[in-house]
């Protein structure tokens, strides 16, 4: 089963699933960062030329350019929870492979290796690695042990209809209970005819058919959630 997720096993025995981000979204993030760095660079150039015209300004400019090139990503990733400006706007985040936030070591490594990923020109190696790697990591990510993932958005659970709760007809596994809740939350979004079909499919569980079967499922779900929101 291909699910495109990275499953992290914590020492407590909990499995966390994060979704590594593919090449396209990372490309947008990089482009936003490119523009941000260009703007910062021009602003600094302008201000420095005003403040100290002549050789000193040029020298300072060199330092600023160096920092924009090498420190921009590192500093932002370390201090802003693994997000640079572009990553923040596109909903991405750098994590360590064990799910922890990146520190100096990882961030410095992955961003120094940008130069290798950039080879032979315009991120050819980096793109190749992202397309080939299982978790869409470029070379820098592989070396630093990091992975770029989608940041989770808080999901809004739809309101369930208020019905009389019923106990389950037989014991369901936790997975099945989750599937049942998922079902009742989403079943109303599919076409009416399809809803009836799904109701028929639930017959072994409810002993009913069609819409009546769905109603029974809603009651089971209410029994699971105690009549409250899931």
């Amino acid at each position: 089963m291909i699910d495109g997720k990275l499953h992290i096993f914590t020492p407590e025995g909990v499995t966390l699933a994060v979704v590594p981000a593919g090449a396209a979204r990372r490309g947008y993030a990089w482009f936003i960062d490119l523009i941000a760095r260009a703007v910062i660079g021009f602003l600094c150039m302008f201000l420095l030329q005003l403040a100290m015209p002549g050789g000193a300004g040029t020298g300072m400019m060199m330092v600023v350019f160096f920092l924009i090139e090498w420190a921009y990503f590192i500093v932002l990733e370390v201090f802003f929870n693994g997000t640079s400006l572009g990553k923040r706007l596109t909903g991405l985040q750098v994590l360590r492979e064990d799910g922890l936030p990146v520190g100096w070591r990882e961030s410095v490594l992955r961003n120094l290796l940008r130069e290798i990923d950039f080879l032979p020109f315009s991120y050819g190696i980096g793109l190749g690695f992202i397309l080939l790697d299982k978790h869409a990591r470029r070379l820098g990510d592989i070396v630093a042990g990091t992975v770029v993932v989608y940041r989770d958005k808080a999901t809004v659970r739809p309101a369930l209809p208020v019905v009389t709760p019923l106990p389950l007809p037989y014991a369901l596994t936790p997975d099945e209970q989750r599937a049942l809740l998922d079902l009742v939350e989403r079943v109303r979004t599919v076409p009416a005819q399809r809803q009836t079909e799904l109701g028929d499919l639930a017959e072994p569980l409810t002993g009913l058919k069609g819409e009546a079967s769905l109603q029974r499922l809603f009651q089971y779900a209410a029994g699971l959630t105690g009549g409250k929101q899931a």
């Binding site: 593919g22 396209a24 037989y170 369901l172 596994t173 099945e176 599937a179 049942l180 998922d182 079902l183 989403r186 079943v187 979004t189 599919v190 076409p191 399809r194 079909e197 799904l198 499919l201 639930a202 017959e203 072994p204 569980l205």
Partner: peptide
């Protein structure tokens, strides 16, 4: 990429994963 987007979109519209979950429940019940 476009094909998997199409698949997910159709699954979402037609409740494929719901159907799968129901079928699995029925199998286990049997």
């Amino acid at each position: 990429g476009c094909f998997t987007l199409y698949l997910r979109r159709r699954a979402e519209l037609e409740g494929w994963d719901i159907e799968l979950a129901l079928r699995r429940m029925a199998q286990r019940r049997a």
